[in-house]
Design a protein around this nucleic acid. Structure first.
Lengths: 345, 345
DNA sequence: CTGAAAGCGCTTACAG
DNA sequence: CTGAAAGCGCTTACAG
């Protein structure tokens, strides 16, 4: 049984299509009686408005696009959940695309969403993205776009982020407060703003505490699919390169967990020999051994907030109102666990 | 700069709309010269076919719907990744909805996808789903639907699953082979076919090995958002209720990890005092301590396969061909780790 | 209160 | 090789 059309209802009832349309939408200028008849028949015929036709007329699809670097990822999947839940509340559907940290793919996907004519786009940038023309294109088409987590400062749109620099500062300060003197950093890839900011926060905390900043103590990882392995590899390298390192601030929990695994294997004691602070508060950080001290990053809330912002901008755009872009900064906090010692300062 | 329309191109070039349409689609009955002119102008005007209009005409949206119980979930997010990746290859977009293990929500979402007129639906059932009318509705509308992981046997459609009974049997047999004599089971919710099958596999393994089946050793958990907590709670209860239990087969890794955490806290040694086998092979199972013996369940492959099946059925439906439903069973394997002892049998 | 008219942007069968 | 015509299913401004 295929869903019926307005025409079918109109013919059954011997009235016109516009009247059926208006009756179903409770226009005030249709008689109660007609409305009753129409609605009843619509129900028994299983009438559902043809979205294709509705979209064509109204020029909106009640659908948004989401481009995310990785799906199998505790933080990002929390964001997805927040977005999808909030969107559903407002009657919006979400099309999800994974950029796989690739700029090329991301570009194609933006194009795809644009030709799909979604009402708006939510995006967290790929590590590989250093050029923003594809995002400017979206903006120049007057299509709302909101960036979250991995953003580009230079692009003029609303952003939902955390204060990465401050959070990293706080993580590093904690290591210092527990007595660490020689602190390494496993940073993220070179381009993303958040890995830059976390690095800067780390560096500033060192300098503010009169600890020397030593570039050779900074290791890079891409934080993609190989995060865990990268953590292991970096930890192995660190043990080869340096002695006396007594603390590490690591860009992402999964990398931190890789590093911890390597240290465990090599008999390096955490936190006695090396203290570790991660970032993001992945669920597994609370169940590994030792449990991982980390920065809690509110993924679900970030998704929810990003959608809410986008929703507002979609409404405004529809009314031809001007949009003033916001930068919304969500709170983070340090979660102290077993991978760091008690603070003594 | 909004995307142009066929009409605009036609006016610029002083030709008719159908000719522009055909030129862009490389119809053989349009002159090379016209094609060249049209394509060039289309590019400079940033022409993109209006999907709303195309969908209305062709009656397909190149979009599918996906309903999944939980998003923040290692197994399910792997499935999502597989679906999205495969869909993109075939030029399909995926709308994702989370049922939150609720039958009511699932029903609404099916309805939503149907009125959205997606070309097909992919679904893993909510724990609460015991009635299948909403799924029958999809089938009666001649809209392809493929179920995966959490399926209903009775619904006539293609299914992509694993052999849960066999896998559970294998997990339990492993416990027996390592010398366990009194094996408990933390099962999933009552309705889902896979938790029933895993329970049956557990039971059969006991009986085949002449071990008594004791219903009081079977604990239930919903395996939803509270999985970890449920694992802890069940473990606590088990220690109160029974002594001499030396092995547990647990329905899901996350529950198993909760149980292990409780045992660790209470000084119960794994695997010396109690051996544990989980299910699904979540990433974290390989990094916790002790590492968890479990059944590997191929999430990414399951997503990929489910989409491929759906795609075939969409094509067939379009050609009005008959669909013969398949049941595709993916391979699983036991991953032996530290939470169980060496096999002695 | 009801309906005729126009149109959203496209595709396709058909005529010339 | 090109274009006039019809139509997908809806909405909205307007006339009566």
């Amino acid at each position: 049984m295929k869903p019926a059309t307005l025409k079918q209802i109109a013919e059954h009832l011997n009235i016109s299509i516009p009247t059926v349309s208006k009756a179903l939408k409770d226009y005030p200028d249709v008689s109660k009686k007609t409305k009753g008849l129409v609605k009843e028949l619509a129900k028994t015929l299983n009438y559902k408005p043809n979205t294709f036709a509705v979209n064509l007329r109204t020029k909106e699809s009640k659908t948004i696009g989401l481009i995310i670097p990785v799906i199998v990822h505790h933080f990002f999947s929390s964001v997805i959940k927040g977005i999808v839940a909030q969107a559903e509340k407002k009657g919006y559907l979400v099309i999800i695309l994974q950029s796989n940290e690739s700029y090329e793919l991301e570009k194609k996907q933006i194009d795809l969403l644009l030709s799909q004519r979604v009402d708006g786009i939510l995006i967290s940038l790929a590590n590989g993205t250093g050029d923003y023309k594809h995002l400017e294109d979206v903006i120049s088409q007057n299509k709302p776009i909101v960036m979250f987590d991995k953003i580009a400062k230079i692009v003029k749109c609303t952003k939902v982020i955390i204060n990465d620099r401050q959070a990293a500062y706080c993580a590093t300060q904690h290591l210092i407060n527990t007595g660490c003197k020689r602190i390494a950093h496993f940073r993220g890839a070179l381009l993303p703003q958040n890995s830059i900011d976390r690095f800067l926060g780390y560096k500033k905390a060192l300098l503010d505490n009169n600890l020397p900043y030593d570039p050779s103590l900074v290791y890079i990882c891409e934080c993609g699919d190989m995060s865990f392995e990268e953590g292991k590899k970096n930890a192995r390298q660190l043990l080869k390169d340096h002695t006396h390192v007594d603390g590490i601030f690591i860009n992402t929990d999964l990398v931190a967990i890789g590093a911890m695994t390597e240290f465990n294997n090599q008999g390096v004691k955490i936190p006695e020999d090396i203290s570790i602070v991660g970032f993001s508060n992945w669920f597994m950080s609370s169940v590994i051994s030792p449990t991982l001290t980390t920065i809690n990053q509110p993924g679900y809330l970030m998704g929810k907030t990003a959608f809410k912002q986008l929703y507002k901008e979609i409404k405004k755009t529809k009314k031809k109102e001007l949009i003033n872009h916001k930068e919304i900064i969500l709170k983070t906090e340090l979660v102290k666990r077993e991978s760091t010692k008690k603070e003594i300062l």
